[in-house]
Design a protein around this nucleic acid. Structure first.
Length: 485
RNA sequence: GGCUCCAUGGUCAAGCGGUUAAGACGUCGCCCUCUCAAGGCGAAAACAGGGGUUCGAUUCCCCUUGGAGCUGCCA
């Protein structure tokens, strides 16, 4: 049975690169009828951010990536939080020490930084741990360790030969051992480093396939040395290229790059985010581009993964979002749009249902909605230049004439419904010898003060109501008359 | 610096020795239209460079260039 895991460290919210790794990991497990496991890698207590674990649970749930085993859902291989597994690592480390694959190191951080500084002075950038403590006799070292002398346990990487592994995506990767450092396996605080914890836990949790970022690509040969020394079979590796902010910067939390949660609160819909992110670094091979999560499970294939980093392109995400919004049922749209309407229209008595009909296919991201509808609450300041439209053949002078003619017609209308408005204005246009656009453009401008609006003149007049519409036309007339002198 | 990995339009990408080098986003133009969107049609836009291998390279190999990652008692 295939078992995969997503193993984030709780240092903040789940960023999009992490979400994509989680997604691929989930897809791979599910399409093979396997299990998707969440494991929290919190062995660095200093970097841990309070509440981050909950944020991870929440994001994965919202994204629909339900895990079969994990800290808050349990499972037969728990606990699923590494700090709670502290006691499990040391025995394996000692086993490695006894076989010579690792050794206790009593060098203090001060010693190390001093020796390092000296070495760097001679050979910049060449420092590796000098195996200083390897010469201590094993029995003595173990004794000192067990007597409580502060120490770490280091991996004893061979000084000759090479180490390698096979990656499903990248193929065979091999590194000369003499370029590898003797990494710390168990820290002075007794907790394992990532280097050791992931090996032990992946084995203990029967993980068959490891999907993770390429930042581990070059250290994986070292992990395989550990598997070998422990007599374990390594998992199948699939390293994933990073998601970039631009050509040379990774998407990061620091530079204010959005998290999954951020995108949701900006008004991106989760299906669009998932769909977009799935296609960032993976191609189905055919020309399909819309996928639900279950469809992704069926379509996903390691062969479609890209080896090169992918730049996160917001415009494409916006396009996906627009598509998803346009396709959602109207009632869903109305429900989602209402709070955004409320931000600028609360208590204004605007017909949200009609407004939603107009806005439904015009919404790209919900956080842009308030700016699009604000004019309904208050006529914005505008320059009469926008009465000019080349294609419509309108200008301020014509607009003045149009508004003067339209004002009494509108005022006389018994009903201010869209149909009635349209008929009245079209009839007027004909009578005045004007094209429809020449009639509608000035009216719409006067009503909205905007060159571009959701809906045309009649829809806006109807939304505004008779009194407000006439008031705005009067404002327009004032402006135009003033300009005309 | 050392090691590892990567390289098709602005972006995501198909291609897996012989193609007019797909498609999508974005951009631009036209049509439609009571504005803007949407929709329809169309256009511009790429194999980083140099060597090989081969009858033939975007595709295989090498070098260069460019980029990324690792080189932490971070993951």
């Amino acid at each position: 049975m295939i078992r995969t895991r997503f193993a984030p460290s709780p240092t903040g919210y789940l960023h999009l690169g992490g979400l994509r790794t989680a997604l691929y990991t989930y897809l791979f497990a599910k399409q093979n009828g396997g299990a998707f496991i969440l494991r929290v890698e919190d062995t660095d207590q200093e970097r841990e951010v309070p509440g981050a674990v909950e944020l991870i649970y929440q994001s994965l749930r919202q994204a629909g990536l339900a895990y079969d085993e994990g800290p808050d859902v349990g499972g037969p291989f728990g606990p699923y939080i590494q700090s709670q597994r502290k006691a499990t690592y040391l025995p394996y480390a000692i086993k490695l020490v006894q076989s010579g694959a690792a050794y206790p190191c009593f060098c203090t951080k001060e010693d190390l930084s001093q020796r390092r500084a000296e070495a760097e002075a001679q050979n910049p950038g060449q420092w590796k741990y000098d195996k200083h403590c390897l010469c201590i006799r094993r029995e003595e070292a173990l004794e000192r360790m067990q007597s409580g002398e502060p120490c770490v346990i280091r991996q004893n990487v061979p000084t000759t030969g090479s180490a390698g592994f096979d990656d499903l995506l990248y193929g065979h990767v091999e590194t000369p051992c003499d370029t590898l450092d003797d990494n710390v396996l168990i820290k002075a605080d007794g907790l394992p480093t990532y280097n050791f914890a992931n090996v032990v836990d992946d084995h203990l949790m029967n993980i068959t396939h490891v999907m993770r970022g390429t930042e581990y690509l070059s250290s994986t040969p070292k992990y395989n040395l550990l598997y070998e020394a422990l007599g374990w079979t390594p998992p199948v590796y699939i390293h994933l290229p990073p998601v970039m902010k631009d050509a040379s910067r990774k998407l990061s939390k620091r530079y204010g790059d959005p998290s999954f949660e951020d995108l949701l609160s900006q008004g991106y819909v989760k299906e669009a985010i998932i769909n977009f992110i799935a296609l960032l670094g993976w191609s189905p091979g055919d020309e399909r581009e819309f996928f639900t999560l279950p469809e992704l499970v069926r379509a996903f294939d390691i062969k479609g993964l890209s080896k090169a980093p992918a730049i996160f392109n917001t415009e494409k995400l916006v396009w996906f979002n627009h598509e998803y919004i346009s396709r959602m049922p109207f009632e869903d749209y109305l429900a989602m749009a209402t709070p955004w309407f409320d931000k600028v229209l609360a208590g204004k008595g605007v017909d949200y249902r009609r407004l939603a009909e107009l806005m439904h296919t015009r919404t790209e991201v919900f956080d842009r909605v308030p700016d699009q509808v604000r004019f309904l609450a208050q006529l914005p300041e505008y320059d009469i230049e926008i009465y000019s439209h080349k294609k419509m053949k309108t200008d301020p002078a014509l607009s003045l004439r149009v508004l003067e003619a339209a004002r009494p017609v509108l005022e006389a209308l018994p009903s201010f419904g869209e149909e009635a408005l349209k008929e009245a204005l079209m009839a007027l246009a004909e009578k005045e010898g004007l094209k429809t656009g020449q009639m509608m453009w000035p009216v719409r401008i006067a009503l909205s003060g905007l060159a571009s609006t959701p809906g045309g003149a009649t829809e806006i007049a109807c939304l505004l109501g008779k009194a407000e519409s006439l008031r705005r036309i009067d404002t327009g007339l004032d402006k135009l008359r003033q300009a005309a002198g």
